[in-house]
Amino acid sequence: MKDLEHAPFDVVTLAVPAFVLLIVLEIGLGWLKRAPVRYETRDTATSLLLGLGSTVAGVLTAGIVGGATIWAWHHRILDLPVAGWPAVGTWIALFLLEDLTYYVFHRLSHERRFWWAAHVNHHSSQHYNLSTALRQSWTGGVNGSWLLWLPLAFLGFPPAMIFVQKGISLIYQFWIHTEAVRRLPAPLEYVLNTPSHHRVHHARNPRYLDRNYGGILIIWDRMFGSFEAERDDEPCRYGIVRNLGDFNVLRAAFHEWWAIGRDLLAARSLRQAVMAVFGPPGWRADGQGDTAVALRARWAARVGADPNPPAA
């Protein structure tokens, strides 16, 4: 029983040497001019320090997250097979449901400010390389987004399996943060989240804003209308709508929380206060805000494009 509550190892920790080696390899490819790789020293330092800080923050909230997941599993509605061949089916179901959960979490993290405030630091670099992948949240544990994974435990997936699958997803998403890989064969591009799809996700071009939320699979974006393909005639411009003015790690980690606090103090009604916290990022009371939807609509009106084209 205890084996199913606690993973015997942390898959992400085991992958850290591979992260380091791949970053060294990517820098080497850029240095040898074998791939369009760009690293800026201070940007790299900020990204890596955010990664280090997120591991500390993760330890501080791990007890609550782990305890809640175990509690949920003790109240499960199904006893899923976890041994022998039948366990393969459990793993496949978990892979799909965890990836769908990630999609929901990621979409929420972009479309509602309370969760965006924790996630924005992952997007605040103007670069897109493997160090950007390690630019992880410091406040993701305190905004409750981990609650989204509890239904998996209630359903009957053991906590150890859930944490292993979450780790596998995080490890998968590391390697796609690169410009060194152009595109994968078409069938893979159709099903998987790839460097090309994720470059779009990190871009701030209006066409690309709030697109491609998938973790391992891109099929959720195709199903739920949030997919956008990378275009050769529109290179990605990375970062956030209003980029940060320095490389300060604390600013990168907390600037949106600061902005929420400022907007709360300026709110003149309960509705404004609620929208300052839970509205879409960029929302303004006068309706002139730079939300992703508004930016895309204004861009589409300027260039005569469809702001929400059908998924390819």
């Binding site: 060294v24 820098i27 080497g28 850029g30 240095w31 790789v37 760009r38 690293y39 800026e40 020293t41 790299t44 160090s131």
Partner: peptide
């Protein structure tokens, strides 16, 4: 390494 490689945009 990133500094020594000198590969900014």
């Amino acid at each position: 390494l990133a500094a020594v490689a000198k590969i900014p945009r």
